[in-house]
């Protein structure tokens, strides 16, 4: 789980060994008829090419522009998000969290790596790393500083530790100066980190 530097040669040989071991196991499982490599390819393609934070950005942009949708999203996020076609594994029970001028929300999974896949894709390495998982619950302002974000001292910070199967999506504050913007244009301002709570939406 460390993100620290390893000696280069050590790192290299270790990865090669893992690479060989994974390849060997895939061969065994395929020969035995337990897995179909074509299904594996499809799983990889889904999360590498189709499902990612652009989905969540569309949800946020719609929440910024459509008050009825926003109301549905905060009442029952799973079904509101499914209206846009995003649903399923690691997003079976989603709750949307509203950032306000007085409360900033940040999501972590201290015990593993729980993350809302249908709207954000697979989590980045830092989200799964020991530095983030250990500090988010005790020093969220320090973590925000690592991301170059400083919030006013008066802003309350609420940290959500995803210890069950509820997945949390932060709806960041809409930046000023974006009145009349289309959903597509607004979605460009919505970063992955702003939907985890380690960032803010981009300023226009």
């Amino acid at each position: 789980m460390t993100g620290h530097d390893h000696h280069h040669d050590h790192d290299h040989s270790e990865l090669s060994e893992t690479q060989l071991r994974v390849r060997a196991l895939e061969s065994v499982l395929t020969e035995k008829g337990y897995v179909d490599p074509a299904a594996l390819d499809l799983l990889i393609e889904t999360y590498e090419k189709k499902v990612g934070p652009r989905n969540g950005a569309r949800v946020v942009a719609k929440a910024w522009t459509d008050p009825a949708y926003r109301a549905r999203l905060f009442k029952e996020a799973t079904s509101a998000i499914a209206e846009l076609g995003y649903a399923g594994r690691q997003g079976e029970h989603i709750v949307a969290l509203e950032n306000t001028p007085t409360q900033h929300n940040m999501v972590v999974c201290t015990l593993c790596s729980c993350y809302p896949w249908p709207v954000l894709g697979l989590p980045p390495v830092w989200y799964k790393s020991a530095p983030y998982r250990s500090r988010a619950v005790v020093d969220p302002r320090g973590v925000l500083k690592d991301f170059g974000v400083t919030l006013p001292a008066a802003t309350n910070i609420r940290v959500w530790d995803s210890t069950a199967e509820i997945r949390y999506l932060v709806i960041p504050l809409r930046p000023g100066g974006t009145e009349g913007w289309s959903e597509d244009k607004l979605a460009e301002l919505v970063t992955r980190d702003s939907m985890i709570g380690t960032g803010l939406a981009k300023q226009p």
Binding site: T2, G3, H4, L15, T18, Q19, V22, R23, L25, E26, L29, V35, A39, L40, D41, L43, I44, Y47, E48, G52, T110, L111, G121, L122, P124, V125, W126, S129, A130, P131, Y132, R133, S134, R135, A136, V137, V138, V143, D146, F147, D161, D193, T198
Partner: peptide, 30 residues
């Protein structure tokens, strides 16, 4: 891990790929 000390700062990777090597892809899918 919640509340432990000593792991150092969070280091985000700019433009991070979904997977960092082929074996990660296969291990995930398997």
């Amino acid at each position: 891990l919640g509340g432990m000390h000593g792991f150092g700062p969070v280091v985000p990777e700019p433009n991070e790929p979904v997977f960092h090597s082929e074996w990660e892809r296969r291990a995930f899918a398997l």
